[in-house]
Amino acid sequence: MAVPLLQVEGLELALRAGRSWLTVVEDVSFAIAPGEAVGLVGESGAGKTLTGLALLGLLPRELFRAAGRVRLEGEDILSLPERALRRLRGRRISMIFQEPMTALDPVFTVGEQIAETLRAHTGLSPVAAKARAVEALAEVGIPLPARRAEDYPHQLSGGMRQRVMIAIALACEPRLLVADEPTTALDVTIQAQIIDLLLRQVSARGTALLLVSHNIGVVRECCSRVVAMYAGQVVEDAPVDALLERPLHPYASGLLRSHPRFAPHRARLPSIGGRAPAPGAMPSGCRFAPRCAHRTTGCEAPQPLLPLEGRAVRCHRAAALDLPGAVP
């Protein structure tokens, strides 16, 4: 692999719980090459959003403690002072969020909110920034951009707002875009439009993409590689097609197989059963063990993330198991 743009190594995030710390993300490692699109999947509470926020240094330091390394073009983000992080956010690394309804400031026009990003990072004059904001709205496919620039967020539909979020995030041509469930709140038809737009925009700019989603279909369309998280850890890191054909980790397999598409019409779905453990109540060994159908001796030991067949997997039985994937 080429020199990575982003390298995450042993990222650990702990949340302040009174006097002690509660580890919510542990031993998360993955890398993203320049221009590469990587998906981050897992069930809710797995730590996807927190990982994304940590990449921008957005977790408040009084609430969260971060350990490990997050290197963007060699620079360690976790040790950067707030002032340096501010110069980085929005310019070299951007983020868009799931809730298009609440992610924009309700009392500023969308044009102002795009121009503001430009002004924070470039020397553009207010007039030039405004003109550029209108162009940016046109680029994300908003009709009548000059008029729409004067609109407030509540005057736009959810899909339109997510387009505005994309325009804001890409305004300064960042090297990496973290998109946290950018289409989850949208209808399939609008989701398809937004995915289309997102892909065209990042490939036109050579921007790398970390796409957080619980929809593996969306990840398959956008990404070449996927990182699956379970209970705060990465459990498998693989090319998307390889994971879909033959997942190596039992959780990844379970996730794929519980999709309604893979069961016969109106037949019971092979669900994983049970629930992910809560932070603070993690099993000492493999975190998936309480729900795993392939548990044997050796599973009581903590599982490291190990390379296997050009992937990384956190299961000592991975090589021996032949697990079903998303192939009917």
Binding site: G217, V218, R220, D241, L244
Partner: peptide, 16 residues
């Protein structure tokens, strides 16, 4: 969006 390996996905999508 279908969660199938690329070899099983037919045709490009034309978003509405």
């Amino acid at each position: 969006p279908v969660a199938l390996p690329s070899r099983l996905v037919t045709g490009a999508r034309m978003p509405l």
